[in-house]
Amino acid sequence: MTILGTGLHFEAVPGETLLAAARRQGVLMPSACRNGTCRECRCRVGQGQVRHTIAWPGLSADEKREGWVLPCVAEAESDVELDAPRAKAAP
C-alpha cells in the first residue's frame, strides 16, 4: 500500500484489513469504531482494488462508485494507492 502524497508505504497480508496493516507497520490512520459505521477512516482509492469485508459498509452507493473505502473493513486485492491525507507515521 502507498499513501499518496506522504511517502508512506506498508504491506498487508491476506485477510488483514488496510487499517490493521497500516497500524502494524507504524502508519496511523484516523479510526474510531473499526466496524465500518463511524466513517472516521474513510479515504479514496487512487489506484488498485479493495474489497469490503462486510456486505454494506457505512458508505453510500455513490461514494462506493467514486472510490471511497473504509480501511477498517477493507482488504487489498492488488497493490493499492490510497488518498488518505490524515495518515501519518507513528512517532
Rank of each mutant, 00 (worst) to 15 (best):
P71G: 09
A55P: 01
P85H: 02
E16I: 01
G67V: 07
M29L: 15
V27M: 00
R65K: 11
V69G: 02
W68N: 03
R24H: 09
G46F: 00
N35A: 14
V27C: 00
A74S: 13
P71S: 11
V73C: 12
A76R: 02
L59K: 02
P57W: 03
C38K: 05
A61F: 09
T37Y: 10
G15L: 14
P14Q: 05
A55V: 01
R39T: 15
T37S: 14
T53F: 02
Q49V: 15
A20Y: 03
D79K: 07
E66Q: 14
A61S: 14
L59V: 02
L82P: 05
G58V: 05
P91V: 04
V27T: 00
H52Y: 12
W56E: 15
A61I: 11
D62Q: 14
S31A: 15
L59I: 04
K64N: 11
D62P: 04
M29I: 13
A87C: 11
C41F: 01
P30Q: 07
G36K: 06
S31F: 13
V13L: 10
H52N: 08
S60R: 11
L70K: 01
I54S: 07
L59T: 03
R39G: 05
G15K: 11
T37P: 00
E66A: 13
V45M: 05
P57R: 04
A22C: 12
A76I: 10
L19H: 07
C33Y: 07
V80E: 04
L70I: 10
D79N: 14
R44H: 08
E77T: 09
P14M: 06
S31C: 10
S31Q: 09
P85N: 03
R42Y: 01
L19M: 13
T37N: 10
R34S: 12
A55D: 11
R51C: 15
E75Q: 15
P85D: 01
L70T: 04
V69H: 01
E11T: 15
G26F: 03
C38D: 08
A21G: 11
C72P: 05
E66T: 06
A61L: 15
A76N: 04
A90V: 01
G26L: 00
A32L: 13
C43F: 03
L59W: 00
E66F: 09
E63K: 09
A20S: 11
W56R: 15
E75M: 13
C41R: 00
A61V: 12
R65S: 08
R65T: 06
A74F: 07
